[in-house]
């Protein structure tokens, strides 16, 4: 008797959890295929792929001019790739130093590198926008890359420093003792051992930039339409188109997140998007 009540209770909780997670998601998918959906029918009266064809640029749509998901996707990927390269070029040396050398004012540095993680970034972006106007960086790819790089770098530094810390210094010392130079040791011993961690931070930075909204909103719009921006612009008046682009964004984000989930702590995952 007692166990069956318990089982029933568990089932009810599982069903409620299932519905509250899956129902909003189902709505999104239904909307992307809805041609006609009038109140109060629980499902669309007419389904079709019209808006998907428009979104994917396979058919010219009436909405949002010539912009399709593919154009926005190209912007997003280019910006994310440049952000990854610039961010890693700067964060990997810094991380190596933080892991191996005594750096003066270290607690202060740590404090600085943690600040963007907790304080709201929007006021910073608002002022960056004003500064970037004077250097003609607003509405350009370099401007958006700089906006993405700043917070992404902070996280990359933490992930990379942890990676280097996990490599025993004895291995490097042994290589040096057997006659290898500093550069050889770095290239043949340290970096190969760091590859998995560095890959994790690379994927993290890519996804951070790919999903970034607030910085792109202030620095990039209206010229730089990344996928999140396209989704936002469509959201006001074209439910179907917005839902289709949301699903494209969702699928790509989820694929990278699945990769990251295995390598990174939950605290990091929570910072994306």
């Amino acid at each position: 008797m007692y166990t069956s009540v318990r089982l029933a209770l568990k089932l009810v909780v599982a069903v409620v959890l299932f519905l509250s997670i899956v129902m909003p998601l189902t709505t999104l998918f239904l909307w992307s295929f809805a041609i006609k959906w009038y109140w109060p029918s629980p499902i669309p009266q007419e389904l079709g792929t019209d808006y998907w064809l428009e979104a994917l640029g396979l058919r010219r749509g009436l909405a949002i001019g010539a912009v399709s998901v593919t154009t926005a996707l190209r912007y997003s990927i280019i910006i994310a790739l440049i952000t990854v390269i610039v961010t890693q070029l700067i964060s990997i040396p810094a991380s190596y130093a933080l892991a191996r050398y005594s750096v003066p004012y270290k607690p202060l540095l740590l404090f600085l590198f943690f600040m963007p993680q907790v304080f709201p970034l929007q006021p910073v972006y608002v002022n960056l926008m004003r500064l970037f106007y004077t250097y003609d960086l607003v509405g350009t790819i370099p401007g958006v890359v700089l906006a993405h790089m700043m917070p992404a770098m902070v996280f990359a530094i933490w992930i990379n420093t942890a990676t280097f810390k996990a490599i025993p210094p004895e291995l490097e010392e042994a290589a040096r003792a057997s006659g290898a130079g500093a550069l050889t040791t770095l290239l043949r011993i340290t970096l190969p051992l760091a590859v998995p961690g560095l890959l994790a931070s690379t994927v993290f930075v890519f996804l951070y930039s790919f999903d970034e909204f607030t910085g792109t909103f202030f620095i990039g719009l209206p010229y730089i339409q990344t996928l999140p921006m396209l989704l936002y612009s469509a959201s006001g008046y074209n439910m179907q188109f917005a839902s289709a682009s949301a699903i494209v964004l969702l699928i790509i984000s989820a694929a990278f997140m699945l990769l990251l989930e295995r390598f990174l702590k939950a605290e990091y995952l929570g910072r994306i998007g």
Binding site: P228, L250, S253
Partner: peptide, 8 residues
């Protein structure tokens, strides 16, 4: 929900 960015 962890896999979805906030804008989605």
């Amino acid at each position: 929900p962890i896999f979805l960015p906030m804008v989605v």
